[in-house]
Amino acid sequence: MSDDSAVAELPGDALREGVVQALRDALGDALLDSVVVPQRDVWVRVRTDAWRQAGIVLRDTVGCDYFCFLSAIDWLPSPFGRGEDDPTAPAPERDTEIRQGVTGGDTRMQVFARVTNIAKHFGVTIKADVPDDEPVVDSWLPVYAGANWHERETHEMFGIGFAGHPDLRNMYRPTDFEGHPLRKDFPLLARLVKPWPGIVDVEPLPGDDSEDES
């Protein structure tokens, strides 16, 4: 295909390292961590107070003018597992250690967003910690107009506030709904009251190698 050459010539590494460098130049030590997977993706984590500034740098300096999405992650391991416990049995022991993923972190919740440079065909995933005591970060609304609905959704699902967003109404749920569904400590009640019937041990078929060990 004729247009493919444009992709093949991409200096992937230099391009993505350049993103990190541009952010480091603009933000200084507010850029906390960065991970570059060559030819694939780049993650950066910035300090909470630099969240909006980082968005402006990404838009104006790095050229990521295409807003992809904004959301959050709750890193607390779910206290309910996958909701497959027998409700009559005593609750099993669960790992409660919070381990943040790529680019690390210090808090339970993180906001993350992705923006894309359409001209040069790459995207950047940017994360920031959300303070545990007061879950509020700056709104990206002045940077990307499309962040409006994404921030409303994140506010509803995680209870994270966005300073500067004019209208953080609920989008999805009926008004009398309580709780923030995507927080890990929000239980799916249907799973807690009824044991999940779908758990079956996979039996090896006749003549099957024992691949299950891996």
């Binding site: 996958r82 909701g83 609920n170 989008m171 999805y172 749920r173 995507l182 799916l188």
Partner: peptide, 16 residues
């Protein structure tokens, strides 16, 4: 006004 078809996919993926 969206949300009339919200089925909670992102939560459901976490338990599957």
């Amino acid at each position: 006004s969206a949300g009339y078809m919200h089925r909670g996919y992102e939560k459901l993926t976490e338990v599957r």
